[in-house]
Amino acid sequence: MDFGSINPVLLLASLMVAATPILLAALGELVVERAGVLNLGVEGMMIIGAICGFAVAVNTGSPVLGFVAAAGGGALLSLLFALLTQFALANQVASGLALTLFGLGLSALLGQGYVGIKPPPVGKLDIPLLGDIPVLGPILFSHDLMVYFGLGLVLAIWAMLKYTRAGLVLRAVGENHDAAHALGYKVVRIRVLAILFGGACAGLGGAYISLIRVPQWTEGMTAGAGWIALALVVFASWKAGRVLLGAWIFGGVTVLQLNLQAAGIAIPVEYLSMSPYLITILVLVIMSADRSRAPASLGRIFHASQ
């Protein structure tokens, strides 16, 4: 047993990286669910984002364009979900599941020519002075831009939902779509926009895996991250701050359990492997013991005639 070989600074730095993909995807889904739509296609949109981002980054040599394309790809796929559920009034659960299966298949097809290729490297944002601060520097100020983008997004979504009129309208649509409709809000339009936003965020999360965290393209590479993001939204009681906390706990415990194994800690590996899921759920369930609950119209179909 050798705790000394675990470097807490490197550990915390890795935590930020491990948490970012699920954080981005979960934030997008949070907005979607706050608008009263349950999109189970996060995994599908993530993997589409992963391949779109990868393909564009490889072909243009620019990771930035890759991330833009990933957001576009994810949004485009989510548009399919929006058409099915908002206009054809299809069942949201079934459509979401279909979206995941479709996304996985389509990404495998798109990715045929990209196996074994290396993407252009994404530079780390080495902030000159802040990055040199001992301990805090490597943890907080030596990451790629997407990590900060994710943190900024948490703040932006929290503020938007809490303080702005747009956030209030979005929540109204999610809580009671009939009342929102009666007040003259365009329920379908608002929901489509929320779905597109969710798709774009999931796409960015996927591209973070294929361009930065792994970085390469392999079929099925998101390996369930989308489902974890979905669960995170529920356990975080649809609150942006708790999504961040959940993503950090999940990412942190994932990285920590690998480090504990490598350090030869005498805890059975089976317990270590399940610990990220257990601890994240436990913490968030305890926190959600307050009055928070799901948006009242979540998953219900809206039609203006009803």
Binding site: S5, L10, L11, R213, T254, L258, N259, V269
Partner: peptide, 27 residues
């Protein structure tokens, strides 16, 4: 030898994390 059991045959993100953890511990 430092050994990490990944409990998967194929999970690129987890494999990358495992490799990173090993490298951070001096491998």
């Amino acid at each position: 030898f430092k050994i990490i059991w990944a409990y998967t045959w194929f999970d690129p993100a987890k494999e990358a994390d495992a490799a990173t953890a090993l490298i951070e511990q001096g491998a």
